[in-house]
Design a protein around this nucleic acid. Structure first.
Lengths: 341, 341
DNA sequence: CTGTTAGCGCGTTCAG
DNA sequence: CTGAACGCGCTAACAG
């Protein structure tokens, strides 16, 4: 391994000078800089992070914590995409990114502790949000820089978070259904305990009310994220006396399940029933019918979170803020005028 | 920050003793160990990685390099799953995992250089394999520990790699189609330049030949991974005079596209045409019809690669080896007896 | 069984 | 503008 000393020796200067050249310290003569840089190239010098981190007490690394994968949610293409978003800015800023690998909550917590106490990273991005989450509380107590993607359950204006305006998104997409003539619209969402679900549902609710449509409790279904989730929801819905003609589904992946269930039941989308959802994951374009869905700009969600976090690691006093990334409806083929069932 | 010295002072021993306690050195008396451990707890001591890494010249971290996401392949649920596999062992062994974040080939290469030269990681897992890849060549030249998931294009028995037996898998799944009475079977795969495609196709080919079925060049289609890929393939296939009744598709995600194309064309699966594919990604269970597919044990692929790599980082002289993770066919509803079109 | 000493590679005073 | 010296926190001989 070629160190700063080797370069110094080769150039006939002191190690500290080389260090200054690396930092591009303006007080070093152009000439020596050139000379030193040349030597670095020739010797193949590369600074050692560990040494650097130790000296400056910072790592230029951020930790990304995925949800406990007990939630199979990880299967959602949402995650690779958000990682890419994060990666795009960590790359630009020459940061590195460390992924949590714990499965259980317990494991994740232990890991975050290591990251923080062991100075593995300068800050942490939480890719989930739960009520009374140990990890978040820990980070908060330690006053360790972190941001969360989504909406925190507590201290909402004390923690910077990056989120969509899910309420408005829910309202807008529901309105789309209403405008195309639907009057009986159901909502299918994931766990009621997730803010995403709650917000989108509230938007749906509001749209329904404002349009003067009847609010029907039976039209609100909460189910598992994956697998049979969609099918169950369909069964429930079909067992109703008055069936809905439009469906607002809180996640593209869920739509897939619903679509399958519907198909099994011999109901055609969008002919018999219309359907809209959220996220605009690549799937929504591939499947038949392609999905009318709200694009929540996942990549941007990731990028913005990384930016915000890095700012925070650089200036700890950076005030908490909320960053709302815009959404936009992508119109495709899962909706048709005034369906009837 | 509480350091080893603080603990030493509080316990009345030397820093080195504390260090030994951390390493659980057997030459330290039980009593001092207890005493020191107690102090560590009370003071909230946690070792600093950077310092440790600097001293021992190792990081207990591994880098994971994703394919240049120019290939939209990243959207494949394959990746989150393999990351989880890797994570499960890095977690157990208390390693951390750093993700590459570059987009272009160039960026990735630069990043890998940093990782290696800067001593960011002890080893690297390559999640792709290309002919004449700069990254791989670099790692090879530097004799830096790395493993690749998939099959390397060159020096195949000099680089340890973790792969499925894609040839056999291809053969077996094709045989399944043959056994259920199909005689005209087509293959739809991704880029011919990927070994996965080649191997699976070769297996298909062999099965077809061994069954004495006619080998038909028109039945082999190569297309883009995502999006329109599936649909294109369908068009080509349907334009044929004699249409196949069975399809072997090299990736579940692709199957989705094909399925959509087929549906658009009013062809029903598995009634009119049967279809099998590879990977057993969660999707294959959700969609209708659910897919008969070969489960390649993605999680294990990840876990094994991490294990192999860590071994290698510990003992550089560990010989290169090939690890084959078993596959297994999962029977579902995309195949029916002797289809005709 | 434990303390002392000397680095690991780099950044940063403080002199000059 | 540059060098010498010290310290970051930890480990690893070498003593004892």
């Amino acid at each position: 391994m070629v160190t700063i000393k080797d370069v110094a020796k080769a150039t006939g200067v002191a190690p500290s000078t080389v260090s200054r050249v690396i930092a591009n310290n303006p007080r070093i003569s152009i000439m020596t800089k050139e000379k030193v840089r040349k030597a670095m190239k020739e010797l193949g010098y590369h600074p050692n992070v560990s040494a650097r981190n130790l000296a400056v007490k910072s790592t230029k690394a951020i930790g990304v914590v995925l949800p406990s994968s007990a939630d199979k949610a990880l299967q959602n293409p949402f995650f690779p995409e958000i990682l890419r978003g994060i990666g795009s800015v960590t790359h630009d800023m020459e940061y590195s990114m460390t992924l949590s690998s714990g499965i259980t909550e317990e494991e994740i917590f232990a890991e975050v502790q290591r990251m923080v106490y062991g100075s593995y990273v300068d800050g942490i991005i939480l890719l989930y949000s739960r009520l009374n989450d140990r990890v978040m509380n820990f980070l908060h107590d330690k006053n360790f820089p972190y941001v969360i993607v989504g909406k925190p359950y507590e201290d909402i204006d004390e923690v910077t978070h990056i989120d969509n305006d899910n309420f408005t998104a829910g309202k807008e997409i529901t309105n789309h259904l209403i405008e195309t003539g639907h009057e009986r619209i159901a909502f299918i969402g994931g766990s009621k305990e997730l803010f995403v679900t709650m917000d989108r549902e509230a938007g749906y609710q509001t749209a329904v009310k404002e349009a003067g449509l009847k609010n029907c409790e039976e039209y609100k279904i909460h189910t598992e994220f994956l697998k049979s989730g969609g099918r169950e929801a369909v069964e429930t819905l079909l067992s109703l006396k008055v069936r809905p003609t439009g469906l607002v589904i809180s996640d593209d992946l869920m739509s897939l399940g619903v679509l399958s269930g519907l198909e099994e039941a011999g109901i055609s989308v969008p002919h018999d029933i219309s359907l809209v959802s959220f996220n605009n994951v690549y799937l929504s374009e591939i499947i038949r019918p392609s999905l009318t869905t709200v694009d929540i700009h996942i990549h941007e969600l990731g990028a913005e979170s990384a930016k915000a976090l890095i700012e925070k690691t650089i200036d700890k006093s950076e005030p908490a803020k909320r960053i709302t990334v815009p959404h936009e409806i992508v119109f495709r083929n899962s909706v048709s005028k005034r369906g009837a069932l």
